[in-house]
Design a protein around this nucleic acid. Structure first.
Length: 813
DNA sequence: GACTTGGAGGTACC
DNA sequence: ACTGGTACCTCCAAGTC
């Protein structure tokens, strides 16, 4: 029979000790389809140079006799083939070794200790990746499938199950996945302690809150059950009934799904939401991932954390903050301290709160769907993987799925010893940062290099496969301190693939600009993120194509270009104020903007390869301050990575200042940002100074709101591991004493209070937000407010400390 | 005990 | 364990006088 099909989820299974792939997805009518395909497992043995045909034949015969016993099965070498391949760009002869069960590839490879074999590779490619690489059905792409109905699908909840015979890519229909979001509320945060109070579900035309404690008849979305057990069973039912492609939660890998599984177990029932009625399975590892057979479980928090967090403004990745930033919607308010003594109204609020969380998660999933589908198609990996992998894996997956056309055998993943060695390596020197002279500057331009690292890697052909042990004819030589690194001029696959990524990014960015739709936007963005992460990948210890020499060369080349360009701009009669890595900020010195643009063109003419300098913007004013002096011997000098700019349209850009640092209290942050804005708009400090005095008076008069003095610091490791007991560690200990769960990564909030006796350490004055006590005026003045504005006013010759003590003296007299 | 200096710790920039 | 290095700044810890 013939059908149209789009693959969504993949899983490998064994039948008679052989591997098969089961793919679940949909047809064009939205029916649930299951495809079974056979899988050929193999790996490579790369041969030593200079073997003759007879020797190779003999080796093949030896290999073909290999079989191993493991886990009650026998895995054999099925056949072998000789191929001319490439490994790290070099021609090699290799034996392709087909085995009956790919699960044992690693073990069989370990058994191949013949001296004719130089290297064994590709026994460590994940099975689904291997399947897709070898022209299997690619995720979220439409196919026309031919095959026969298979009874291998009889235990699976799908409309048709087909054993694949032929497949052909076809022009797509639209595919809109069925998304169902869920969220639970529990009586205790810690898994295994409490029970589940309610479960909310949100989908298209579908909203439910299931509960068993208390009920409210006025809310039609609330369904009441007589026990937790019944509630969980109904949850399973509803998931089945809705039949989602994607079941999504926010932090659900770490909380909702394991909690549900644990409570199902405690109630002696099965959480059989898989299409084959299986329960969710949890992968071990640093982070647990909850997998549901046939339904893609997406923990949106993880996708956002791994891929988008560095591009978000949100200071935490809480559902509330992320939803505020991306959807303009917030969580409903609910005071959890009411939990012990809930009245009917409280329960109503709680149900709404719970439902709204699912609604926000659903809305986020709809928004991120375009990123998910584009990532999945570009990286050729299933949704489950792309929503959990980090950027290094994304870069690597992109390479893996594009190596075939280079006829390359894939490099292996590093294992323990190798990882340890790599982690212990010396750090290489990074980019150049120009030390600014503090001051308020007017009429400024900023140029920056487009995709700086990728453009250097591509232009200079830097990578593991192009790295040479010694210089060759025409090879590139990079001098770093007393070392020399050489790179071949012959194009390597890594720079070539990266060049394609950049080209595609350009192309889709253009398309997006022409036609502003979420698909082209997500596509262009995916390529941008891949390009951005490619340089870091070279120095990442877990990378298959790890090459710190290439990373170090890229930074050495970048330093040269940045410094050369700074000189060039200065020579043309401008005045460079600041530079960090790929950007150069300079005063126009009365030159018209057109002249600066002409200079930009000229610089570009002389840039090699795909390197390019572009205008970031023109700015009306810019403020640079000095570093805070640490010891009395230190001389004051300009601070790097801290500046504030206002462009010609009046838009303000603040970098590095306390304003943008979450570990400062909002009193200091807000005051500083207002001071910066006044100075940038007015061009002088007069108004700003008034404002500072006003706030200080408010502070001294104890008129500052409690919210404004809270300091938030992240807990980066277990409390006991801290060598130095800082205020946030004390606050953490206090939380623990109150019985609050302490988790690594959580933000700890506290304030500094007045104490009866004189205490010298800040940590001795730490109080939690709900503790009684008054804020410490001296601390907030000297350690928060004044430091935040001191260096800014200093630029104008104002010593704020003197101004303050002077004015208070005046009052005294 | 006051003061200095180095380092741990956290967070930002690109 | 899950891209890289550069930089600022606070507060503690430990040393000196």
């Amino acid at each position: 029979m013939k059908i149209e099909f789009i693959p969504v989820d993949y899983e490998a299974f064994d039948l008679d000790d052989k591997n098969f792939i089961r793919i679940t997805g949909r047809n064009e009518k939205g029916k649930r389809i299951c495809i079974i395909d056979k899988f050929d497992g193999y790996f490579w043995a790369i041969l030593k140079e200079g073997l003759n045909d007879g020797e190779i034949k003999k080796l093949q015969q030896k290999i073909e006799k290999i079989s191993i016993e493991k886990a009650n099965r026998t895995t054999k070498v099925e056949k072998t083939e000789i191929h001319n391949k490439k490994f790290l760009g070099k021609d090699v002869k290799a034996i392709k070794i087909f085995i009956t069960n790919y699960k044992d590839a690693h073990d069989i490879a370990d058994n191949l200790d013949f001296q004719e074999i130089d290297k064994r590779r590709e026994y460590d490619i994940p099975i689904v990746t291997r399947y897709i690489m070898d022209h299997g059905l690619a995720p979220l792409t439409w196919y026309e499938i031919e095959g026969s109905i298979s009874d291998l699908g009889k235990n699976i909840d799908c409309d048709v199950c087909i054993l694949l015979e032929k497949s052909k890519k076809i022009e797509g229909h639209e595919f809109q996945p069925k998304i169902l979001a869920y969220d639970i509320e529990a009586s205790e945060f810690e898994l295994g302690k409490g029970d589940i109070l309610m479960i909310s579900l949100y989908g298209k035309n579908f909203k439910k809150v299931l509960t068993w404690n208390k009920c409210s008849k006025k809310q039609d979305f609330v369904e009441c059950f007589s026990s937790e057990e019944e509630m969980i069973e109904k949850f399973v039912d509803y998931v089945k009934q809705y039949d989602p492609d994607i079941l999504t939660g926010y932090f659900s890998d770490g909380f909702d799904l394991p909690y549900l599984r644990a409570r199902a177990e405690a109630n002696k029932i099965k959480l059989s939401i898989g299409l084959d009625k299986s329960q969710p399975s949890f992968s071990r590892g640093r982070l647990i991932s909850g997998r549901i057979f046939g339904i893609v479980h997406v923990d949106l928090y993880r996708f956002i954390e791994a891929v988008f967090s560095q591009y978000l403004q949100s200071e935490t990745l809480s559902l509330n903050e992320v939803a505020s930033e991306l959807l303009g919607d917030k969580k409903k308010e609910f005071d959890f301290s009411r939990l012990g003594k809930m009245k009917e109204d409280d329960w109503r609020d709680f149900f709404e709160y719970n439902l709204h969380d699912s609604y926000l998660t659903y809305s986020l999933a709809e928004k991120f769907w375009f990123d998910m589908i584009e990532f999945s198609k570009i990286l050729q990996e299933p949704l489950f993987e792309i929503t959990r992998d980090r950027m290094s894996s994304h870069v690597e997956n992109y390479i893996l799925h594009n190596l075939e056309r280079f006829n390359e055998i894939t490099e292996k993943r590093p294992i323990h010893d190798e990882i340890g060695k790599r982690q212990g390596r010396e750090r290489y020197e990074g980019a150049f940062v120009f030390q600014p002279t503090p001051g308020l500057y007017e009429n400024i331009a900023i140029f920056d290099f487009t995709s700086y690292w990728p453009s250097i890697i591509v232009t200079y052909n830097l990578s593991k496969s192009t790295f040479l042990n010694s210089g060759e004819k025409d090879s590139l030589e990079v001098d770093i301190d007393n070392k020399k690194y050489f790179f071949s001029k012959k194009k390597g696959f890594f720079p070539e693939i990266l060049n394609e990524i950049i080209e595609k990014r350009k192309k889709y960015k253009q398309e997006y600009k022409k036609d502003d739709n979420p698909i082209t936007k997500a596509r262009s963005n995916a390529y941008k993120l891949l390009a951005n992460a490619s340089y870091g990948y070279l120095g990442f210890f877990g990378a298959r194509y790890y090459c710190p020499e290439a990373g170090a060369s890229a930074t050495a080349i970048s330093r040269d270009f940045t410094k050369k360009t700074i000189d060039e701009i200065n020579k043309k009669g401008y005045n460079v104020i600041y530079s960090d890595t790929d950007s150069i900020c300079f005063e126009l010195n009365n030159h018209p903007k057109e002249d600066a643009l002409k200079m930009l063109e000229e610089i570009n003419k002389n840039l090699p390869g795909i390197m390019e300098l572009e205008l970031e913007d023109f700015f009306k004013r810019g403020l640079f301050v000095s570093k805070r002096i640490k010891s009395k011997k230190d001389e004051s000098s300009g601070a790097k990575k801290k500046y504030a700019l206002i462009n010609d349209q009046g838009k303000i850009k603040i970098r590095g200042f306390e304003t943008v640092r979450r570990d400062w209290c909002s009193l200091a942050r807000i005051l500083q940002s207002r001071v910066l804005e006044l100075i940038l708009r007015d061009g002088n400090e007069a108004h700003a100074l008034e404002l500072v005095k006003e706030v200080i008076n408010k502070l001294k008069g104890r008129k500052i709101d409690r919210k404004e003095i809270m300091i938030r610091t992240q807990l980066k490791k277990p409390l006991a591991e801290y060598k130095s007991i800082t205020p946030h560690v004390i606050a953490g200990q206090k939380l623990k004493e109150q019985g609050m769960p302490i988790k690594i990564g959580m933000l700890i909030e506290y304030f500094i209070s007045e104490t009866r006796e004189k205490k010298s350490l800040v940590r001795e004055k730490v109080k939690l937000p709900d503790e009684k006590g008054e804020y410490n005026i001296e601390y907030y003045l000297n350690n928060q407010v004044l430091p935040a504005v001191e260096n800014i006013l200093e630029v104008f010759g104002v010593n704020i400390k003197e101004v303050i003590s002077g004015s208070s003296q005046k009052k005294l007299f």
